[in-house]
């Protein structure tokens, strides 16, 4: 049995150029959806159906996609939950966080709350679906994985550790069938009051010295700054050199 899978897609933003693009995680969501449902995958977007970036998603080989037409300032969640309630769906895939807008990553949670479905965060892969239960791999830091089972239907947010989105081809992207559904969204009132500014680089925390005495403070202030060229070991024995490397590895906590 092929499950009914819906991948939600949003307009991404390239971190370097700031240009609209296929969002990294949403692309992976579509890829995972294609793996699970093949051609039958439904792809859903809320926003402007004329947006050219949608064609980049379609270039992954989607014959059609649905766009819930709505103004950019409107909240996507009510429209989505209304739409999803009508369809018979087993799995909804989203990214962990959008690359534009608030980027709070709340969409899957809000949808899950509204639909009363479980939500699985940071999915790396959906391994199998059997008897209405899916086996899901969750992404943990450093490439670690956790295995979890969950009953259908559910919502999953797809992590960067999932299989990367396939290449988007120009031709199929141009020929996609866009099904546009009119919805009316409410303007997000809370957000109107917020102030947005380009992100400032965050200061890196310095090692502050809490000295009790003047002498200690003086020592800290006049100490040679760390860094510069590294330590070079030339004439020591191989064992000593290896020990030095090993100590550094332990100090950096990369060896367990």
């Amino acid at each position: 049995m092929q499950p009914n899978v819906v991948s939600l897609i949003s307009i991404g933003r390239h971190p370097q150029s700031g240009r609209a693009r296929r969002a990294e995680q949403d692309g992976r969501g579509v890829e995972l959806g294609l793996k699970l449902a093949g051609e039958k995958l439904s792809v859903l977007h809320v926003g402007n159906p004329e947006e050219p970036v949608l064609r980049q998603y379609a270039g992954m080989g989607l014959p059609a996609m649905t766009v819930l037409k709505q103004d950019e300032t409107a909240d996507a969640v009510p429209a989505l939950s209304d739409y999803l309630q009508q369809e018979k769906i087993d799995i909804v895939l989203t990214g962990v966080r959008s690359e534009s807008g608030e980027s709070s990553g709340m969409v899957p949670y809000l949808l899950a709350e509204k639909l009363g479905w479980p939500v699985v965060a940071r999915v790396a892969d959906i391994v199998s679906i059997k008897d209405g239960v899916a086996e899901v791999l969750l992404a943990l830091p450093r490439g670690q994985r956790r295995s979890v089972t969950v009953k259908l239907p559910f919502i999953a947010s797809v992590d960067n550790a999932a299989a990367p989105a396939r290449q988007s081809a120009f031709g199929p992207g141009q020929r996609v069938r866009m099904e546009s559904v009119n919805t009316h969204g409410e303007v997000d009132q809370i957000r109107v009051d917020w102030q947005e500014a380009p992100a400032k680089p965050r200061p890196k925390r310095l090692k502050t010295v809490k000295a009790k005495t003047a002498a200690d403070r003086f020592k800290a202030a006049t100490a040679k700054p760390q860094g510069g060229s590294g330590k070079v070991m030339k004439n020591e024995s191989a064992a000593e050199k290896a020990k030095a490397i090993f100590d550094l590895l332990i100090e950096e906590n990369v060896i367990r």
Binding site: G101, Q195, A197, A199
Partner: peptide
């Protein structure tokens, strides 16, 4: 807080 995929600083209550 950071928004817009890390490109925005949103100031809010």
């Amino acid at each position: 807080c950071r928004g817009g995929g890390g490109s925005l600083d949103i100031s809010r209550q």
